[in-house]
Amino acid sequence: MEPRVEQVNAGKAAIFDLDGTLLDSLGVWKKVDEIFLARRGFEVPDDYMQAIAPLQFREVAAYTIERFGLDETEDALMQEWDELAAYQYTHEVQTKRGAAEYLTWLKRSGAKLAVATTLSAVLRKPALVHVGLWGLFDEVVGVETVAHGKGEPDIYFRAAELVGIEPAHCTVFEDLLPAIRSAKRAGMQAYGVYDKSSKMLWNQIEQEADGTIFDFTQAPRELV
């Protein structure tokens, strides 16, 4: 018999980023960036991943074309990146420690669950299916469906709207400082999730987030 779970989170929602938050995917994109830029005679600059992390996928393509002076289309770049990343997300990527258990607990407690991600639409479902999380979410929202990237709160407002929970009762989990700031601007509680891609900004994340965790074994057991 399943143990009883009190409905302590009914009427509340948790919104999760994927890359670097639920998914331990730093190695995937590091490899993609290395292969992609090496094909064009470049090394990956130290600040590249931080610069592109909050952007929409097409914005990343536009930024990359401009930064490296590439004579290619945004669509061509996005297709190549998807092809390079597809195998890793479908077969290799793993979750951060405790993620599956925490999501299952939240679901059973009555909370609404949503994903708010910059990850390409062709990658996010295969990744979530691979790690066994696909069926847990009430909504999966891609940044391509809103006007701005995660430097603005659009995607968090959209996720809250879709799950039917007021922003004040939403808790966001993110690994990126600009995303944490946007979630707080949306009036939501924001937790910083440690990822090596953001380690240079971790002290600042600790100062600005409502709470921080190194993995989901440390995640809050009650939402706002």
Results as ranks from 00 to 15, higher is better:
Q56G: 03
E72A: 15
D82K: 09
E66F: 06
I15G: 01
L70I: 10
R185S: 11
Q50V: 08
R97N: 09
G98I: 05
P167I: 06
A168V: 13
V172C: 03
Y63K: 14
P45M: 14
G164A: 12
R124Q: 14
P3I: 09
R221M: 15
N203L: 10
G98K: 13
A10C: 09
R4I: 13
K196L: 15
P45L: 13
R158W: 06
F57Y: 10
K31L: 13
V224W: 07
A147I: 11
L106E: 03
E66R: 11
L201I: 10
A38P: 05
Q189W: 01
V172F: 05
M78S: 05
R39L: 13
A159Y: 02
H169R: 10
L123P: 00
A13T: 03
V5N: 06
S120K: 12
E43H: 14
A61V: 02
Q94N: 11
V163N: 04
Y48R: 08
R97A: 15
K30L: 10
V93H: 01
F16S: 04
E83W: 08
N9L: 07
E59R: 06
V8A: 13
V5T: 12
S198C: 13
I155S: 05
P220C: 09
L37R: 08
E161L: 11
R67G: 12
T64R: 04
R97K: 12
R185M: 09
V131G: 02
L133W: 03
F216L: 09
M200A: 13
A99G: 05
F157S: 07
G192Y: 01
E83M: 09
G69D: 09
R124Y: 15
E80A: 07
E166Y: 05
E152G: 04
D75K: 07
Q189G: 03
K125M: 06
D33P: 00
Y191R: 09
T217W: 08
L77D: 05
A111Y: 01
H148F: 14
D82E: 14
G187H: 01
Q189M: 14
G69Q: 11
L106V: 07
E144P: 01
A51C: 10
D17G: 08
D82R: 10
K31R: 14
V8G: 06
L162V: 12
R108L: 11
K96S: 02
W134M: 07
A179G: 15
I205E: 00
Q88W: 08
L23A: 02
T171M: 15
A190G: 02
V193E: 01
G98W: 04
L84G: 01
E174Y: 06
K30G: 06
V163Y: 00
R4S: 13
G98A: 10
D71Q: 11
F216T: 04
N203M: 11
L37G: 03
T90W: 00
